Computed example of a mutant assay.
Amino acid sequence: MKITFSDDAPHFDGSSLKLAFVAYVDGEAVACAITAEALEDHFGANSAQEDELLRAFERGRARIRSVCEQALEHNDGASVELHSGVFRMDEE
């Protein structure tokens, strides 16, 4: 399974408080997201405001992509939503 990521900025979804981004699994676009809670808990976002979340995403982009890649491999390339607990497990 070949996994790559778009370099486009993630999209803020204010109704669900998450940032959506795209991964490509074997060339097919797969919707992925990270919650505001995860960005606050692990990447230094000071609030769930869009600008704070985007800055936190940029700070943590490499780790977010790494954890997302692991999740995509684990679930056969299906859509992924990264919650705070996924990053806590990654730290252990």
Rank of each mutant, 00 (worst) to 15 (best):
M1R: 09
K2C: 07
K2T: 15
D8A: 14
A9E: 13
P10H: 08
P10V: 10
H11G: 01
H11P: 00
H11T: 12
F12P: 00
F12H: 06
D13T: 03
G14H: 04
S15Q: 12
S16A: 15
K18C: 11
K18L: 14
L19T: 00
L19W: 04
L19F: 05
F21L: 08
V22E: 11
A23M: 10
A23Y: 04
Y24R: 15
V25K: 06
D26E: 14
G27N: 06
A29R: 13
A29C: 09
V30E: 05
V30R: 14
C32L: 10
C32Q: 13
A33V: 08
A33H: 06
A33Q: 07
I34T: 09
T35E: 08
T35P: 02
T35N: 07
E37A: 13
A38Q: 00
A38W: 02
A38V: 02
L39I: 06
L39Y: 03
L39V: 02
E40V: 15
F43R: 01
F43A: 09
F43C: 08
G44E: 04
A45D: 03
A45S: 04
S47C: 13
S47M: 14
A48K: 11
A48I: 05
A48V: 09
Q49D: 11
Q49W: 04
E50R: 12
E52T: 12
E52Q: 14
L53W: 04
L54H: 13
R55E: 13
R55T: 08
A56R: 01
F57Q: 02
E58I: 07
R59I: 05
R59H: 13
G60W: 02
G60I: 03
R61K: 12
A62V: 11
R63Y: 01
C68L: 09
A71I: 04
L72G: 03
L72R: 03
L72F: 04
L72H: 02
E73K: 11
E73R: 14
E73F: 10
H74C: 14
H74P: 01
G77D: 06
G77Q: 07
A78S: 15
A78F: 14
E81F: 05
L82A: 05
L82W: 06
L82K: 01
H83C: 07
F87K: 00
R88V: 08
R88E: 13
M89A: 12
D90C: 01
D90E: 13
E91G: 04
